[in-house]
């Protein structure tokens, strides 16, 4: 195995490779985000025996671009009673954590460039999972800030709900993946992927099915997707925390929601499905897994009604949290034996 490329052994190549990786990952994620909106409208439309967009371009394929252009040219309204700085800051605070989380997700095996090993991962943090959980926690500040700074009762309730929901579900999500790094004995995502390498049976979805289910459900709740989209429950809260937002700021919220979906899908694939492992070249494998999870998210949105607030809290604290703790205990016992 050749030496790992780093800033000390070939700085120019390192910076070039880094920039390439960052740009390509960013562009791919933005493209997935754009076309996830299209896919969502198409799939949900079909599931509700409608057609979804058909008019813009062949099969409506230019719909995301049309939507983006439309939102870009819309009037940008800041309510006169809003706290201006926080109001402008909130959509960025929600989008940035969503995008920078992608930085630690490995999207392929190692490749060799000019005699140096280059990992297909933007940054291999040795506290990767901790970083992801921290960023997920940071994302909720954007929602709370948006809800509070809009100076609107619906926004405020949406923001407060988001805070309560994320706090409740972050615990269960965090605890459910504790079992994973108890097995992998590392917090680095690269390490976790290596620990699952070899046979398909080494994937943690088989050794940790409970943790997989818990993490899947709690992370849907964390990114405020249906059936846990209480912060933006249209029926009672108009549009929740983003009621007062318009134009590009609204588009940022929208992008953040889908970017979060991509990140969570990539994260579940990495933690439980061996990341880039599989029959095809690494990048394609992880993309297949990500698209699979995205499809399931969309499918669930088309199927399930929103849970009630007390059901949400009940599930978070009285079902998922004890189950996650139980899973840790069982895993610990099995490891010791």
């Amino acid at each position: 195995m050749p030496e790992m490329l780093s800033l000390s052994n070939d700085p120019i190549l390192f910076i070039a490779v880094m920039l390439t990786k960052i740009l390509s990952v960013f562009i791919v994620v933005v493209l997935i985000v754009a076309y996830a909106t299209y896919a969502e409208r198409k799939i949900i439309g079909r599931m509700q025996t409608r057609l979804g967009p058909t008019m813009t371009g062949p099969l409506g394929l230019l719909q995301p671009i049309a939507d983006g252009l439309k939102l870009f040219f819309k009037e940008d309204i800041i309510p006169s009673q809003a706290s201006k700085v926080a109001f402008v800051l909130a959509p960025m605070m929600i989008l940035v954590p969503a995008f920078i989380t992608v930085g630690v997700i490995p999207f392929g095996g190692d490749i060799v460039i000019r005699g140096y090993t280059v990992p297909l991962q933007i940054a291999d943090l040795n506290v990767g999972i901790l970083y992801i959980i921290a960023m997920a926690g940071l994302g909720v500040y954007g929602i709370v800030l948006a809800g509070w700074s809009s100076n609107n009762k619906y926004s405020l309730i949406g923001g407060v709900r988001a805070a309560a929901q994320v706090i409740s579900y972050e615990l269960a999500a965090g605890l459910s993946i504790v079992a994973v790094f108890m097995l992998a004995e590392t917090l680095s995502l690269r390490g976790i992927v290596e620990a699952q390498s070899g046979s398909i049976l080494n994937w943690y979805v088989f050794s940790q099915p409970l943790a997989f289910c818990l993490f899947f459900i709690t992370s849907i709740a964390e990114i405020n997707r249906t059936p846990f989209d209480l912060p933006e429950a249209e029926t009672e809260l108009v549009s929740g925390f983003c009621t007062e937002y318009s134009s590009m700021k609204y588009a940022l919220f929208f992008m953040a929601e889908y970017a979060n979906m991509v990140v969570i899908a990539a994260l579940i694939s990495t933690l439980f499905l061996g990341g880039p492992a599989g029959p095809f070249p690494g990048v394609i494998n992880i993309l297949i897994k990500v698209f699979g999870f995205m499809f399931i998210f969309i499918w669930m949105r088309a199927t399930f009604p929103r849970v009630r607030y007390d059901q949400l809290m009940f599930m978070g604290w009285k079902v998922f949290l004890p189950l996650a703790l139980l899973n840790i205990v069982i895993t610990g016992v099995v490891i010791i034996l």
Binding site: I43, R46, M47, T49, R50, T54, W299, T303
Partner: peptide, 22 residues
């Protein structure tokens, strides 16, 4: 019930279930 609901929506995803007239 969850699986029942999911299977209904999946069934509608198959071509030929759309009731839309373009």
């Amino acid at each position: 019930e969850f699986i029942q609901g999911l299977s209904i929506t999946a069934k509608h995803l198959l071509p030929g279930h759309s009731t839309t007239v373009e």
